[in-house]
Amino acid sequence: MKGYWLIIGKEISDQEAQREYGKLWKPIGEKYNARINPLEVPPALKEARDAHRVTIVEFPSYELATACYDDPAYQEACRFALRASNRELLILKGELA
């Protein structure tokens, strides 16, 4: 069964940190066969309060989704993501089709 990260974030307040996160994320995402926003129709953000962005990251399995998050390289990259904006990240198991 596939695994997903659901990331709900506020506006990006530190563009430099976001760029660094993007650079660090690329090889990590490739390592875990992650696909960003795999749906044909992006999710609609409703009743968002402070949120401005929704990102879905799809992994071949739930185990890979959790392993990616726990990977020391991702934890290093995550520091930049959290500096770039406030966000919530949930890890889900299932199929989105």
Results as ranks from 00 to 15, higher is better:
Met1Glu: 10
Met1Ser: 15
Met1Lys: 12
Met1Asn: 12
Met1Tyr: 11
Met1Gly: 13
Lys2Ile: 03
Lys2Pro: 08
Lys2Gln: 11
Tyr4Gln: 10
Tyr4Cys: 10
Trp5His: 04
Trp5Asn: 02
Leu6Cys: 04
Ile7Arg: 04
Ile7Val: 15
Ile7Gly: 07
Ile8Asn: 09
Ile8Phe: 10
Gly9Gln: 03
Gly9Trp: 05
Ile12Val: 13
Ile12Phe: 03
Ile12Trp: 00
Ser13Trp: 02
Asp14Trp: 00
Asp14Ile: 00
Gln15Phe: 06
Glu16Ala: 14
Ala17Glu: 00
Gln18Ala: 15
Glu20Tyr: 02
Tyr21Glu: 09
Gly22His: 05
Lys23Met: 04
Leu24Ser: 06
Trp25His: 04
Trp25Ile: 01
Trp25Lys: 07
Lys26Tyr: 07
Lys26Glu: 13
Lys26Asp: 13
Pro27Met: 01
Ile28Lys: 03
Ile28Leu: 05
Ile28Tyr: 02
Ile28Pro: 01
Glu30Asp: 14
Lys31Leu: 06
Lys31Ser: 02
Tyr32Cys: 01
Asn33Cys: 08
Asn33Pro: 00
Asn33Ala: 15
Asn33Arg: 14
Ala34Ile: 09
Ala34Cys: 05
Arg35Ile: 15
Arg35Ala: 09
Ile36Cys: 03
Ile36Leu: 12
Asn37Gly: 06
Asn37Arg: 14
Asn37Cys: 11
Glu40Ser: 13
Glu40Tyr: 11
Glu40Phe: 08
Glu40Cys: 05
Glu40Asn: 13
Glu40Arg: 06
Val41Ala: 13
Pro42His: 01
Pro43Gly: 07
Pro43Met: 08
Pro43Asp: 07
Pro43His: 04
Ala44Val: 14
Leu45Ile: 11
Leu45Pro: 08
Lys46Arg: 13
Arg49Gly: 08
Arg49Ser: 14
Asp50Pro: 03
Arg53Gly: 07
Arg53Asn: 14
Arg53Val: 11
Val54Gln: 03
Thr55Gln: 13
Thr55Cys: 12
Thr55Trp: 13
Ile56Ala: 00
Ile56Val: 09
Ile56Gln: 00
Val57Glu: 10
Glu58Asp: 04
Phe59His: 02
Phe59Val: 01
Phe59Ile: 02
Phe59Pro: 01
Ser61Arg: 07
Ser61His: 05
Tyr62Cys: 08
Tyr62Met: 11
Leu64Gly: 05
Ala65Cys: 01
Ala65Trp: 00
Ala67Cys: 04
Cys68Phe: 07
Tyr69Cys: 02
Asp70Tyr: 09
Asp70Cys: 09
Asp71Ala: 05
Asp71Asn: 03
Asp71Met: 03
Pro72Lys: 11
Ala73Phe: 11
Ala73His: 12
Tyr74Asp: 05
Tyr74Cys: 03
Tyr74Trp: 05
Gln75His: 02
Gln75Ala: 01
Glu76Met: 04
Glu76Lys: 12
Glu76Gln: 07
Ala77Tyr: 02
Ala77Leu: 06
Ala77Cys: 08
Cys78Pro: 04
Arg79Phe: 07
Arg79Leu: 11
Phe80Asn: 13
Phe80Leu: 06
Ala81Thr: 06
Leu82Ser: 12
Leu82Cys: 12
Arg83Tyr: 00
Arg83Phe: 01
Asn86Glu: 14
Arg87Cys: 12
Arg87His: 14
Glu88Pro: 02
Glu88Tyr: 10
Leu89Phe: 07
Leu90Thr: 07
Leu92Asp: 00
Leu92Pro: 00
Gly94His: 05
Gly94Trp: 05
Glu95Ser: 14
Leu96Ala: 15
Leu96Pro: 06
Leu96Asn: 09
Ala97His: 09
Ala97Lys: 13
Ala97Glu: 15
